[in-house]
């Protein structure tokens, strides 16, 4: 028996008393329990009160079944008549929950990666404070233009299939400072995410509608 502190031994004994009462302790653990019980009146009392509790439960009278629950051919027919879709409900609930979670993830990613464009007048006013502006624009400005006059790469260029993008508008004096990704629809990243989001919105709504409808039907019909 490891030389445990007495407090830990008490805790262990109280946790294992129930299993000890049922004879479910390993031989070594049972010996340790008995060795402790010999010298600990408080734990012995705990054991006895637990034994009384189990005895009281065992003495609970059995209530006879109020009627026979034998099945009749009618019961069986009725159970067979339960529509197949009743069995789909759990899967449908899971699918609608998953679609909702996916939708939230896509919307979250869209909001994080592609922050909404600033309103034009405000953006113009802030054009002089470039360092304080959004991540997208900062990132765009940090990319060194390869050749004077050629479009600088932007974040959306990373998306496969994206065509050449215009230079960041902020670097061109007189042009409204709008986040390049939101300024045009030519980019691939954000619209792709939006398309996925739209698809997931439709899927989640469809699944939620179906689940709600079938659950309601199940309640009404009593399946």
């Amino acid at each position: 028996m490891p030389p445990w502190p007495l407090k830990d031994t008490h805790r262990w004994v109280r946790r294992e008393l129930s299993a000890y009462l049922d004879g479910r302790l390993e031989a070594a653990a049972a010996r340790r329990m008995e060795a402790h019980l010999v010298g600990c009146a408080r734990c012995r009392e705990e054991l006895e009160s637990l034994r009384d509790t189990v005895a009281a439960l065992a003495a609970l009278p059995q209530t006879p079944a109020p009627r026979s629950f034998r099945l009749t051919p009618k019961d069986v027919e009725r159970s067979k008549a339960t529509p197949v879709w009743v069995g789909w409900l759990p899967a449908l609930r899971l699918a609608s929950a998953a679609a909702t979670v996916l939708l939230l993830m896509v919307l979250g990613a869209d909001a994080l990666l592609y922050p909404p464009a600033l309103p034009a007048p405000a953006a113009m006013g802030l054009a002089a404070q470039a360092p304080k502006e959004g991540i997208t624009r900062e990132a765009a400005q940090q990319v060194p233009p390869a050749v004077e006059g050629t479009p600088a790469p932007t974040l959306r260029d990373a998306a496969p299939g994206a065509g050449p993008a215009p230079a960041p508008v902020a670097s061109q004096p007189g042009t409204p400072a709008v986040a390049p990704d939101r300024a045009t629809d030519g980019g691939a990243g954000a619209p792709a995410l939006r398309r996925i989001a739209m698809f997931l919105v439709a899927l989640a709504l469809m699944l939620l509608g179906a689940t709600a409808g079938l659950t309601l039907a199940r309640r009404v019909r009593g399946y």
């Binding site: 009462l21 049922d22 302790l25 329990m33 008995e34 019980l37 054991l47 009384d52 009281a56």
Partner: peptide, 19 residues
């Protein structure tokens, strides 16, 4: 649920494993 007083076992722990 008060049960009759039972004699306190001196040194002998009430054993389990009867179930």
């Amino acid at each position: 649920f008060a049960l009759p007083e039972r004699p306190k076992a001196e040194g002998g722990a009430a054993g389990g494993g009867e179930r």
